[in-house]
Protein backbone atom coordinates (compact mmCIF):
# COMPACT_ATOMS: atom_id res chain seq x y z
CA UNK A 1 0.00 0.00 0.00
CA UNK A 2 1.34 3.39 -0.90
CA UNK A 3 0.49 6.44 1.18
CA UNK A 4 1.76 9.98 1.52
CA UNK A 5 2.81 11.44 4.84
CA UNK A 6 4.24 14.94 5.15
CA UNK A 7 4.30 15.08 1.36
CA UNK A 8 6.53 12.04 1.01
CA UNK A 9 5.85 8.57 -0.37
CA UNK A 10 5.34 5.82 2.22
CA UNK A 11 5.14 2.08 1.71
CA UNK A 12 3.22 -0.22 4.01
CA UNK A 13 2.89 -3.97 3.45
CA UNK A 14 -0.72 -5.07 3.94
CA UNK A 15 -0.39 -8.81 3.29
CA UNK A 16 -2.19 -8.29 0.01
CA UNK A 17 -5.43 -7.20 1.68
CA UNK A 18 -7.45 -3.98 1.36
CA UNK A 19 -7.90 -2.10 4.62
CA UNK A 20 -11.32 -2.71 6.14
CA UNK A 21 -12.78 -0.26 8.67
CA UNK A 22 -14.54 -3.14 10.44
CA UNK A 23 -11.27 -4.92 11.29
CA UNK A 24 -8.81 -4.26 14.09
CA UNK A 25 -5.47 -2.88 12.91
CA UNK A 26 -1.88 -3.75 13.75
CA UNK A 27 1.15 -1.73 12.73
CA UNK A 28 4.63 -3.30 12.56
CA UNK A 29 7.63 -0.98 13.05
CA UNK A 30 11.05 -2.31 12.13
CA UNK A 31 14.43 -1.77 13.74
CA UNK A 32 17.52 0.20 12.69
CA UNK A 33 18.50 -0.20 9.05
CA UNK A 34 15.83 -2.77 8.24
CA UNK A 35 12.43 -2.76 6.55
CA UNK A 36 8.90 -4.16 6.65
CA UNK A 37 9.88 -7.61 5.43
CA UNK A 38 11.77 -8.25 8.68
CA UNK A 39 8.30 -9.15 10.04
CA UNK A 40 7.53 -11.33 6.98
CA UNK A 41 5.93 -14.36 8.60
CA UNK A 42 4.27 -12.56 11.50
CA UNK A 43 2.75 -9.71 9.51
CA UNK A 44 1.49 -12.14 6.89
CA UNK A 45 -0.21 -14.22 9.60
CA UNK A 46 -2.22 -11.31 10.96
CA UNK A 47 -3.14 -10.12 7.47
CA UNK A 48 -4.69 -13.51 6.78
CA UNK A 49 -6.37 -13.77 10.19
CA UNK A 50 -8.77 -10.89 10.21
CA UNK A 51 -6.52 -7.91 10.89
CA UNK A 52 -5.65 -4.80 8.93
CA UNK A 53 -1.85 -5.00 8.69
CA UNK A 54 0.46 -2.10 8.04
CA UNK A 55 4.07 -3.30 8.11
CA UNK A 56 5.87 -0.03 7.56
CA UNK A 57 9.02 1.01 5.80
CA UNK A 58 10.21 3.95 7.89
CA UNK A 59 11.33 7.01 5.86
CA UNK A 60 14.55 6.26 3.97
CA UNK A 61 14.10 2.50 4.39
CA UNK A 62 12.82 -0.07 1.91
CA UNK A 63 10.32 1.55 -0.42
CA UNK A 64 9.58 4.67 1.62
CA UNK A 65 11.02 7.99 0.52
CA UNK A 66 13.81 9.48 2.59
CA UNK A 67 15.47 11.07 4.34
CA UNK A 68 15.44 9.06 7.57
CA UNK A 69 13.85 10.81 10.54
CA UNK A 70 16.28 12.20 13.11
CA UNK A 71 14.58 11.21 16.36
CA UNK A 72 12.30 8.62 17.92
CA UNK A 73 9.81 11.40 18.62
CA UNK A 74 9.68 12.32 14.95
CA UNK A 75 9.17 8.65 14.06
CA UNK A 76 6.35 8.36 16.59
CA UNK A 77 4.59 11.39 15.12
CA UNK A 78 5.17 9.97 11.65
CA UNK A 79 3.47 6.69 12.66
CA UNK A 80 0.47 8.71 13.83
CA UNK A 81 0.59 10.44 10.44
CA UNK A 82 0.52 7.05 8.72
CA UNK A 83 -2.60 6.12 10.71
CA UNK A 84 -4.19 9.38 9.56
CA UNK A 85 -3.25 8.73 5.93
CA UNK A 86 -4.63 5.19 6.14
CA UNK A 87 -7.76 6.44 7.92
CA UNK A 88 -7.16 4.14 10.86
CA UNK A 89 -8.36 5.51 14.18
CA UNK A 90 -6.62 3.18 16.58
CA UNK A 91 -4.11 0.39 16.16
CA UNK A 92 -1.93 -2.05 18.04
CA UNK A 93 1.76 -1.36 17.50
CA UNK A 94 4.40 -4.08 17.25
CA UNK A 95 7.96 -2.81 17.29
CA UNK A 96 11.32 -4.49 16.99
CA UNK A 97 14.47 -2.98 18.52
CA UNK A 98 14.46 0.71 17.51
CA UNK A 99 10.83 0.14 16.50
CA UNK A 100 9.97 -0.65 20.14
CA UNK A 101 11.06 2.86 21.14
CA UNK A 102 8.89 4.27 18.37
CA UNK A 103 5.94 2.23 19.64
CA UNK A 104 6.52 3.34 23.24
CA UNK A 105 6.82 7.00 22.30
CA UNK A 106 3.80 6.81 20.02
CA UNK A 107 1.78 5.27 22.87
CA UNK A 108 2.90 8.09 25.17
CA UNK A 109 2.32 10.93 22.70
CA UNK A 110 -0.75 9.63 20.91
CA UNK A 111 -2.46 7.55 23.58
CA UNK A 112 -5.82 7.75 21.88
CA UNK A 113 -4.45 6.16 18.72
CA UNK A 114 -2.63 3.22 20.28
CA UNK A 115 -4.61 0.23 21.52
CA UNK A 116 -1.65 -1.75 22.84
CA UNK A 117 2.07 -2.22 22.17
CA UNK A 118 4.22 -5.32 21.71
CA UNK A 119 7.94 -4.70 22.16
CA UNK A 120 10.22 -7.30 20.58
CA UNK A 121 13.87 -7.06 21.70
CA UNK A 122 14.02 -3.78 23.53
CA UNK A 123 16.21 -1.86 25.93
CA UNK A 124 15.87 1.42 27.73
CA UNK A 125 17.92 3.42 27.51
CA UNK A 126 18.98 1.89 24.18
CA UNK A 127 22.62 2.86 24.40
CA UNK A 128 24.54 1.98 21.26
CA UNK A 129 28.20 1.01 21.51
CA UNK A 130 30.41 3.94 20.61
CA UNK A 131 32.34 1.86 18.08
CA UNK A 132 29.08 0.88 16.37
CA UNK A 133 27.89 4.50 16.18
CA UNK A 134 31.23 5.73 14.90
CA UNK A 135 31.47 3.04 12.24
CA UNK A 136 27.93 3.81 11.07
CA UNK A 137 28.77 7.52 10.97
CA UNK A 138 31.69 6.75 8.68
CA UNK A 139 29.49 4.41 6.60
CA UNK A 140 32.12 1.81 7.31
CA UNK A 141 31.22 -1.81 6.57
CA UNK A 142 32.26 -2.79 10.08
CA UNK A 143 28.96 -1.22 11.23
CA UNK A 144 27.13 -3.81 9.13
CA UNK A 145 29.31 -6.52 10.66
CA UNK A 146 28.42 -5.40 14.18
CA UNK A 147 24.73 -5.18 13.26
CA UNK A 148 24.84 -8.66 11.76
CA UNK A 149 26.80 -10.44 14.48
CA UNK A 150 25.39 -8.71 17.55
CA UNK A 151 21.95 -8.84 15.96
CA UNK A 152 21.77 -12.63 16.28
CA UNK A 153 22.32 -15.17 19.02
CA UNK A 154 25.91 -16.47 19.13
CA UNK A 155 24.84 -19.93 17.94
CA UNK A 156 23.13 -18.62 14.79
CA UNK A 157 26.10 -19.03 12.41
CA UNK A 158 26.56 -22.57 13.63
CA UNK A 159 22.93 -23.55 13.91
CA UNK A 160 20.00 -24.15 11.62
CA UNK A 161 17.69 -21.44 10.35
CA UNK A 162 14.01 -22.22 11.00
CA UNK A 163 13.36 -20.82 7.55
CA UNK A 164 14.68 -23.64 5.30
CA UNK A 165 17.70 -22.87 3.19
CA UNK A 166 18.22 -19.31 4.39
CA UNK A 167 21.41 -17.88 5.92
CA UNK A 168 20.52 -15.24 8.50
CA UNK A 169 23.86 -13.44 8.47
CA UNK A 170 23.81 -13.12 4.68
CA UNK A 171 20.25 -11.86 4.69
CA UNK A 172 21.03 -9.15 7.23
CA UNK A 173 24.13 -8.05 5.34
CA UNK A 174 22.24 -7.89 2.05
CA UNK A 175 19.53 -5.73 3.60
CA UNK A 176 22.05 -3.35 5.17
CA UNK A 177 23.97 -3.04 1.90
CA UNK A 178 20.82 -1.65 0.26
CA UNK A 179 20.70 1.30 2.65
CA UNK A 180 21.60 4.78 1.50
CA UNK A 181 24.66 6.19 3.28
CA UNK A 182 23.84 7.70 6.64
CA UNK A 183 20.57 5.85 7.24
CA UNK A 184 21.95 3.34 9.73
CA UNK A 185 23.73 6.06 11.67
CA UNK A 186 20.57 8.18 11.82
CA UNK A 187 18.67 5.20 13.26
CA UNK A 188 21.34 4.28 15.78
CA UNK A 189 21.74 7.88 16.92
CA UNK A 190 17.98 8.28 17.31
CA UNK A 191 17.88 5.12 19.45
CA UNK A 192 20.91 6.15 21.49
CA UNK A 193 19.56 9.65 22.17
CA UNK A 194 16.00 8.63 23.04
CA UNK A 195 14.52 9.62 26.41
CA UNK A 196 10.94 8.77 27.31
CA UNK A 197 9.16 11.83 28.66
CA UNK A 198 5.56 10.66 28.93
CA UNK A 199 3.80 7.65 30.36
CA UNK A 200 2.48 4.52 28.67
CA UNK A 201 -1.03 3.61 29.82
CA UNK A 202 -2.02 0.95 27.28
CA UNK A 203 -1.42 -2.79 27.65
CA UNK A 204 2.10 -3.84 26.73
CA UNK A 205 3.96 -7.05 26.02
CA UNK A 206 7.72 -7.55 26.09
CA UNK A 207 9.07 -10.37 23.89
CA UNK A 208 12.75 -10.87 24.71
CA UNK A 209 15.41 -13.29 23.53
CA UNK A 210 17.40 -14.91 26.31
CA UNK A 211 20.52 -14.95 24.09
CA UNK A 212 20.09 -11.39 22.81
CA UNK A 213 23.52 -9.75 22.70
CA UNK A 214 22.34 -6.34 21.50
CA UNK A 215 19.42 -5.82 23.89
CA UNK A 216 19.73 -8.53 26.55
CA UNK A 217 16.62 -9.11 28.73
CA UNK A 218 18.15 -7.26 31.68
CA UNK A 219 18.36 -4.10 29.55
CA UNK A 220 14.55 -4.01 29.32
CA UNK A 221 14.12 -3.81 33.10
CA UNK A 222 13.89 0.00 33.34
CA UNK A 223 11.17 0.10 30.72
CA UNK A 224 9.35 -2.83 32.32
CA UNK A 225 9.30 -0.90 35.59
CA UNK A 226 7.76 2.08 33.82
CA UNK A 227 4.94 -0.07 32.44
CA UNK A 228 4.14 -2.20 35.51
CA UNK A 229 1.12 -3.89 33.95
CA UNK A 230 3.18 -5.20 31.05
CA UNK A 231 3.51 -8.92 30.38
CA UNK A 232 6.84 -10.47 29.44
CA UNK A 233 7.68 -13.51 27.35
CA UNK A 234 11.32 -14.59 27.26
CA UNK A 235 12.21 -16.93 24.41
CA UNK A 236 15.05 -19.34 25.06
CA UNK A 237 17.76 -19.79 22.42
CA UNK A 238 16.81 -16.64 20.51
CA UNK A 239 18.96 -13.61 20.03
CA UNK A 240 17.98 -10.11 18.91
CA UNK A 241 16.35 -11.16 15.61
CA UNK A 242 13.46 -13.03 17.21
CA UNK A 243 11.20 -12.89 14.14
CA UNK A 244 13.78 -14.88 12.18
CA UNK A 245 15.45 -16.90 14.95
CA UNK A 246 12.25 -17.95 16.74
CA UNK A 247 9.46 -17.14 14.31
CA UNK A 248 6.84 -19.48 15.75
CA UNK A 249 7.42 -18.57 19.40
CA UNK A 250 7.37 -14.88 18.52
CA UNK A 251 4.17 -15.29 16.52
CA UNK A 252 2.52 -17.30 19.28
CA UNK A 253 3.36 -14.60 21.82
CA UNK A 254 1.88 -11.95 19.54
CA UNK A 255 -1.25 -13.99 18.89
CA UNK A 256 -1.78 -14.46 22.62
CA UNK A 257 -1.38 -10.74 23.28
CA UNK A 258 -3.31 -9.31 20.36
CA UNK A 259 -6.16 -11.78 20.26
Amino acid sequence: MRLRVDGKAVFAYTANHELDAKKRSVVFIHGAGLDHSWFGLQSRYFGYHGWNVLALDLPGHGRSEGPPLPSIGAMADWVAGVLDAAEIGKAALVGHSMGTLVAVECAARHAGRVERIALIATAYPMKVAEAFLEAAKRNDYSAFDMHTIWGHAPQVPLGGNPNPGMWMYGDTQARLERLAPGVLHADLKASNDYALAGAVKCPALFILGRRDVMTPPRAARTLQEQIPSAQTVVIDFSGHSLMAEAPDATLDALIGFLR
Binding site: Q42, Y48, G160, N161, P162, D248
Partner: peptide, 22 residues
Protein backbone atom coordinates in the same frame (compact mmCIF):
# COMPACT_ATOMS: atom_id res chain seq x y z
CA UNK B 1 0.35 -19.83 3.46
CA UNK B 2 3.89 -18.98 4.59
CA UNK B 3 2.85 -17.60 7.95
CA UNK B 4 5.07 -20.03 9.79
CA UNK B 5 8.47 -21.50 8.97
CA UNK B 6 8.84 -25.23 8.54
CA UNK B 7 8.59 -28.18 6.22
CA UNK B 8 5.52 -29.46 4.41
CA UNK B 9 6.70 -31.77 1.65
CA UNK B 10 10.25 -32.77 0.72
CA UNK B 11 9.98 -31.56 -2.86
CA UNK B 12 9.74 -28.03 -1.46
CA UNK B 13 12.07 -28.41 1.53
CA UNK B 14 13.61 -31.10 3.71
CA UNK B 15 15.63 -30.73 6.95
CA UNK B 16 18.71 -32.58 5.63
CA UNK B 17 18.67 -30.70 2.36
CA UNK B 18 18.16 -27.42 4.25
CA UNK B 19 21.43 -27.98 6.13
CA UNK B 20 23.31 -28.24 2.84
CA UNK B 21 21.52 -25.18 1.47
CA UNK B 22 22.30 -23.05 4.50
Amino acid sequence: NMERAGHVYSRISNPTVAVLEE
